[in-house]
Design a protein around this nucleic acid. Structure first.
Length: 626
DNA sequence: ATGCGGCCTG
DNA sequence: CAGGCCGCAT
């Protein structure tokens, strides 16, 4: 069926009984941005046929009262919209073909334009007529005694004013969105154009220089030819490099343009909870640093703006208050005494930015030297266990520490991050279609990530959209446990965005965390009893530090590879938990079979925000690949 | 009825 | 770590 026929059918459908079909069609038309592609497909000869059809329709239709009000009011907007899309199409054409566009004969183009506009007008009228039918489709009963016009009139009268209003609102909002989107797209295209120009210049520079090299020498034809081959190679090499860097620039641009509105960058060094002072850590441990001291170690590091741009790029899921809300709701504001600032809610630095205590004089590499998108990963090596306190509650006998070697691991997250963003953008149901479409330069429709890697210039860097949970997912979950002991299912969905969720997956993930908790609480009880048996009387004598045996056991369980630096906050939570168990046992509350529940209630309020970086599907994949 | 967390077991 | 079971809350 060609498009001409389909237009005809639109009219027929609107007249006929298949109004549901017509509705979806109309909506499709309204949503189809600019509908430029479709429009180009319409043979102009068909315009007259459509107009005729519409004329006959108009003749049939009553001209009185409200009947004509709605179309007349809406028509100019829609027409304008169409012409706007037409102009955007032109501008896009300009930008996409900088070498000039196809020029038509002036008269011809004018004539075609007129016909084209007529056809559009006809179509729009058709659409409006279709819309008029819609609201009362269900309520309409076929009354044979009345003619079509009367029925239509009745329907119009039944149509609540509010619906007409909201319809117009929708149209105008839609229009505004499109204007904004067009503006952004245009900017982006201009950007690309500039880059292309730069390419050309560079290309010609290289070409000229190699040319003059060849000319300047005393060379035989053969050697010139072989040199030419070398030049043909060098060019390819250079072009490849240039294309690569340009592509990354373009991707960055696109991501920046379409990640609206730019959220204030995630606080790299969020303020620590006020209650931190209540915990006394081993002051005589030379290798122990409070979180604040750690921050100072990092103080002289200047973060490059690209990193900021990465950190600042809002992850749509977190930004759109759809999925994120349950997480917020789960804990009341009063429970979050840390801060109302979402960026500062996280009680500890970003894990990958969590500087080691020795970062100043070890191999820790300043992010300034890294690729904009790659992030440093600080490996935290195990401290020597020699002489370490066995229960963890003693702070006085902790030994000097041996060697703290921290291997920074470069993460190739650049493309991963971009892909992640793109995926979220194009798949996010709450995202306006227009925004997703803006990314169509890279990927036209929402599809599998596998598709993304296909079109990715970084073909070596792929992420797979897993059907199930992998061992890496388990590791990731374990690391997340350092931040959250009681993640909600909506939260899990956000942080395991590369997993196709179903009931089974969700419950499995929840089960994992349940198991993690189980282990955690068993250890807590064990160490609390041990402390009591060892004669510890005051709860304040129990301190959990990185030297503590308890910490080591937990770290071994959740961070076996020890390639992740456990956030300070986790130590605090562990200590609080241990205190709770200790106090409860001392007070003989454990005679109550459900004595632990009170403790659970306390601990579940101590969850902190899991760093955004955990939402990146590849972050841990890279981290754990080694 | 369903979902969730916890406990027990293998 | 997963499966089965139970109790609790919605």
């Amino acid at each position: 069926m060609n498009s001409h026929q389909s237009k005809k059918q639109d009219v027929l459908e609107c007249q006929g009984a298949q109004l549901g079909e017509a509705k979806s069609d109309v909506l499709r038309k309204l949503l189809k941005r600019g509908s430029s592609y479709e429009d180009n497909m319409i043979p102009f000869s068909g315009a007259t046929t459509i107009t005729n059809l519409l004329k006959s329709n108009k003749a049939m239709r009553g001209t009185g009262g409200r009947d004509s009000v709605v179309p007349r009011k809406a028509e100019p907007e829609l027409l304008q919209e169409d012409t706007c899309s037409n102009s955007s199409q032109e501008s896009a054409e300009e930008c996409l073909s900088p070498f000039g566009k196809i020029s038509l004969d002036h008269m011809d183009s004018e004539r075609l334009n007129k016909e084209y506009l007529q056809a559009k007008r006809a179509r729009v009228e058709n659409i409006i007529r279709g819309m008029n039918h819609l609201p009362n489709v269900m309520a309409t009963s076929i009354s044979s005694g009345k003619d079509y016009d009367n029925r239509e009139n009745k329907r119009k009268q039944k149509l609540p004013q509010q619906q007409q209003h909201s319809f117009q609102q929708v149209v105008s909002t839609h229009k505004q969105q499109k204007v904004e989107e067009r503006r952004q797209l245009k900017l982006q295209l201009e950007d690309m154009q500039k880059q292309l120009k730069q390419f050309q210049e560079k290309f010609f520079q290289i070409y000229d220089s190699t040319d003059s090299e060849a000319d300047g020498g005393n060379l035989s034809e053969d050697s010139v030819r072989s040199d030419g081959m070398l030049v043909g190679k060098r060019l390819a090499e250079t072009l490849k490099q240039e294309l690569n860097s340009a592509m990354s620039q373009v991707v960055d641009t696109v991501v920046n343009v379409f990640s609206k509105p730019p959220r204030p960058p995630l606080q790299v060094f969020p303020s620590l909870p006020a209650n931190e002072d209540h915990f006394v850590f081993n002051g005589n441990n030379p290798n122990f640093h409070t979180a604040n001291q750690r921050l100072q170690c990092f103080g002289d590091v200047v973060f490059p703006s690209p990193l900021d741009s990465f950190v600042g790029v809002p992850l749509p899921c977190a930004n759109d208050q759809t999925e994120a809300l349950p997480l917020v709701v789960r804990k009341s504001a009063s429970e979050h005494h840390q801060s109302s600032d979402p960026g500062a809610q996280n009680g500890h630095p970003h894990p990958s930015l969590h500087p080691s205590s020795l970062s100043g004089n070890t191999g820790f590499i300043s992010p300034s030297f890294r690729h904009p998108f790659s992030l440093p990963l600080v490996g935290y090596s195990f401290q020597s266990t020699l002489g370490a306190s066995s229960t963890g509650y003693s702070s006085k006998d902790s030994p000097g520490l041996m060697d703290l070697s921290r291997e920074p691991t470069s993460l190739r997250t650049k493309m991963a991050s971009s892909q992640h963003l793109m995926l979220n953008h194009s798949c996010s149901p709450v995202l306006p279609r227009s925004t997703a479409e803006g990314l169509s330069l890279i990927k036209s429709e929402c599809g599998d990530l596998q598709d993304m890697s296909d079109i990715s210039p970084y073909s070596g860097c792929t992420i797979s959209f897993s059907e199930g949970l992998s061992p890496n997912h388990l590791k990731k979950a374990k690391l997340m446990f350092f931040y959250t002991r009681y993640p909600s299912s909506s939260m899990l969905k956000m942080y395991f965005s590369d997993v196709k969720f179903n009931r089974c997956i969700t419950s499995q993930l929840i089960k994992w965390f349940s198991n993690f908790r189980e282990f955690y609480y068993i250890q807590m009880e064990k160490f609390a009893r041990q402390a009591i048996n060892n004669g510890v009387a005051a709860v304040d004598d129990i301190i959990v530090s990185r030297d503590s045996e308890l910490y080591k056991v937990l770290n071994m369980h959740y961070n076996k590879a020890n390639d992740f630096e456990v956030p300070e906050r986790f130590l605090e939570v562990a200590q609080i938990t241990l205190h709770e168990f200790f106090s409860a046992i001392v007070a003989s509350r454990d005679v109550d079979p459900s004595w632990k529940k009170a403790i659970y209630k306390v601990i579940c309020k101590l969850d902190s925000e899991v760093p955004e970086i955990f939402k990146s599907a590849n972050y841990l994949q890279e981290l754990l690949r080694e």
